[in-house]
Design a protein around this nucleic acid. Structure first.
Lengths: 146, 146
DNA sequence: CCTAAGGTCTCTAGTAGCTATAGCTTCAAG
DNA sequence: CTTGAAGCTATAGCTACTAGAGACCTTAGG
């Protein structure tokens, strides 16, 4: 049996994050010690490692919730899991495309900056005038994972 | 003079977002009509367009705040602006690298899924076992822009 | 001049995915 | 037995907005 600290260490997840996952129902409420401290077994560790790995791959918690409930029913079709993974892949690809365009624009901007006064600064100028841009860079929307 | 709706339309920014920018001090408090409605002039439009463009390029609001105050002092060196832009470029490059790794992993995962039962699903299996991964994909941290 | 529609006002709360703080209790080592 | 680390709950904060409630203003048509 692991305390929450040991569990976090084993799974590479911070302690408050584990409590947060429990709070939002991603992890079941564990048994408690006589002194009311959480105690976890192997299944909690497996589940938390799964969550962490999916987070690393950028899956949102809602998708992870679905994936977890799928993995709890091993006999069903994996089509649903495939759909979720493909959606995540599409999301990553679209973010990649936007970021690539941004990178080009930022590079152009930085390279052209001659290092003089603000009044001549290419960075400030480009920011103030979108028509100086090569692309139509639409907002890079994204998402985090710790 | 523009109402907040016209300003938003002209700059491509939603009305509540403009009020939000005012609230956090990115935009100055504008004059008001007799009926207490905000009225904006050209300078507000320029400033808002600058902000929008910088957001599209992924700059965080704090960086935009700095860039705006730099652009208000045209005679100073643009070194500081250059630093901010280069930091943003570095951030974008690092996100790109992480996303590229994620994309590879997700592709591997999806391609290997044979479409059978959950118990055999490569997607679920890989998520549950990080050692099946090719890379050490560290968390993709990111950031949004509308 | 009146009315109706649509724009604007303020304020509050919600989103994702945590992180941080305060003030307490429990546990393990010495 | 004491002390310091680790745990507990509860609340608030982070980014950058978005959504909603309920009231007020503005303007075009009749």
């Amino acid at each position: 049996m692991l305390t929450i600290g040991k569990l976090g260490e084993a799974a590479g997840v911070k302690v408050p994050t584990i409590r947060y996952y429990e709070q939002i129902g991603l992890l079941p409420e564990p048994d408690r010690s006589a002194g009311n401290q959480r105690l976890y077994g192997q299944s909690a560790l497996d589940r938390l490692a799964f969550i962490r790995h999916a987070r690393e791959l950028g899956f949102p918690l809602d998708a992870i919730r679905d994936l977890l409930s799928l993995s709890d029913r091993p006999d069903q079709s994996c089509a649903a899991a495939d759909v979720i993974a493909r959606a995540q892949l599409a999301e990553v690809e679209s973010r990649l495309a936007r970021l690539t365009a941004l990178k080009g624009e930022l590079e152009r901007m930085v390279v052209q900056c001659a290092g003089g006064r603000i009044a001549d600064c290419r960075v400030i100028e480009v920011l103030g005038d979108h028509s100086l841009c090569a692309t139509d860079h639409q907002h890079p929307e994204s998402e985090a994972a710790s």
